[in-house]
């Protein structure tokens, strides 16, 4: 096979590549942050006993965990407007899908983190006369947060890759930008290889970081 690689040609428009990388990072950071906020509130609420609170929240978590993210994004963009009678802009529909998806996983991570703190620790705090809020703040959360960090980092890595689904609603992230450049240059090999390499360069350090965190928690 004699294929003549021409990376220079596909990478020439550096501004556009940087713009795509910027959108990808922006969506990753914003939807991870939004997801963590959702996770903290829903996770805390799920620890309670009131079924009229926990039941709908469990429903939310399971629906978003058990349906493909691709369908969620497409649904918010194409289907929801029919119910609402007005359409969401693509950037918002996609952002909403990504954030709620991340939020569902964060809720589980948060809930599981708190649940992983044994009954004995709760009782030891109660035995000292702590209120629920004091117990959470002083005893449970400091221990639980340490255990939540590795799964949160892993979920964030997944989330950055998931932003490539912005492609389907034409938000110009790294993936969508690659498809446009491909259409213009007829060089899919160079373009998609470059895009993959860029994703790899962004994520590989994060996976190393996650591994280090896990070994530290084990200690």
């Amino acid at each position: 096979m004699h294929y003549h690689w021409d990376l220079a040609m596909v990478l020439a428009d550096t501004d556009r590549w940087w713009h795509g990388i910027g959108i990808t990072l922006l969506y990753s950071v914003a939807t991870v942050a939004g997801g963590i906020v959702i996770g903290v509130f829903c996770g805390l609420a799920l620890l309670g006993q009131k079924r009229w609170i926990t039941l709908p929240l469990e429903g939310y978590v399971e629906i978003f965990r058990c349906t493909p993210l691709l369908i969620q994004i497409v649904w918010f963009y194409y289907a929801l407007p029919i119910l609402l009678n007005f359409s969401l802009p693509a950037w918002l529909a996609a952002g909403l899908g990504l954030t709620l998806y991340m939020g569902a996983f964060c809720t589980e991570i948060f809930r599981a983190g708190v649940m992983s703190i044994g009954r004995g620790q709760w009782q030891a705090g109660r035995a000292l006369g702590m209120t629920y809020a004091q117990l959470m703040r002083r005893i449970v959360l400091p221990q639980a947060v340490r255990r939540m960090i590795p799964p949160l980092v892993n979920q964030s890595i997944t989330q950055l890759k998931n932003t490539a689904l912005l492609y389907v609603v034409a938000v110009p992230d790294l993936m969508y930008t690659s498809s446009i450049i491909t259409a213009e240059t007829y060089r899919p090999l160079e373009v998609y290889t470059s895009a993959a390499a860029i994703y790899f360069i962004m994520l590989y350090p994060l996976t190393l970081f996650a591994k280090r965190l896990e070994t530290r928690v084990d200690r």
Binding site: G120, Q123, A124, R126, A127, L128, G129, M130, T131, Q134
Partner: peptide
């Protein structure tokens, strides 16, 4: 909580 704070407890574990 105030009641419990007046009683000391030591656990098996």
């Amino acid at each position: 909580a105030a009641y419990r704070s007046r009683i000391g407890m030591v656990f098996q574990h």
